[in-house]
């Protein structure tokens, strides 16, 4: 149950809105954070918390791509395939990952570590090709970078190649610093 573990967060989230239903997506995020996806039990519980019917919760969940209704791998790799990334070689990036992990978009590795998805624009067209893994963006991908990211994630669960606050082109001093 979410309520026992997150009572304080739930109360705070609901307090931001004059109408309870507005807290629906934020609470679904909480559920997804807990289980990796939105479970049926979580949807029922959230319906009760917000005084909604379960179908009202379900119809909302099914509209949004960030909310998963099925379990995904520990690392959900979402490669942007929209035109702007495609011009910069995103199909090649998908090809690398397919070869390296042996999975096609929509599939997960048998060990449950990686799920691969091809997704639409993530607002990084200036630093294409790119992908999002869980909460982090990885941009200007090359084959060497993809190798390092996959290796890092397997060994340490995180990678220092992830993007910081976005700015491109970089300010002049940063360019000098990074050579």
């Amino acid at each position: 149950m979410l309520k026992e573990k997150y009572q304080k967060e739930i109360d705070e989230i609901i307090s931001r809105y004059p109408v309870k239903r507005s807290a629906l997506i934020p609470l679904l995020y909480l559920a997804q954070q807990e289980h990796g996806y939105v479970t049926e039990a979580a949807m029922k519980e959230i319906a009760q918390l917000l005084k909604l019917t379960p179908p009202q919760v379900y119809e909302t969940v099914t509209f949004y791509t960030v909310l998963n209704l099925k379990p995904v791998g520990k690392f959900h790799m979402q490669v942007c395939k929209s035109l702007m990334c495609a011009l910069a070689g995103s199909d090649t990036v998908l090809g690398w990952i397919k070869t390296k992990l042996g999975i096609a978009p929509g599939e997960s590795t048998p060990d449950g570590l990686f799920t691969l998805s091809a997704v639409e624009c993530l607002a990084s067209c200036g630093t294409a090709p790119m992908m999002q893994i869980n909460d982090d963006y990885y941009e200007q991908l090359t084959e060497a970078k993809v190798d390092k990211i996959l290796g890092d994630l397997k060994t340490t669960g995180t990678s220092d190649l992830k993007s910081g606050p976005y700015m491109w082109p970089l300010p002049v001093d940063a360019v000098r610093r990074e050579g």
Partner: peptide, 16 residues
Amino acid sequence: DESEPGTFKDRQLMER
């Protein structure tokens, strides 16, 4: 909700 393919300015304005 910057989602228009080809657009990535709001992200920079917000994050920087």
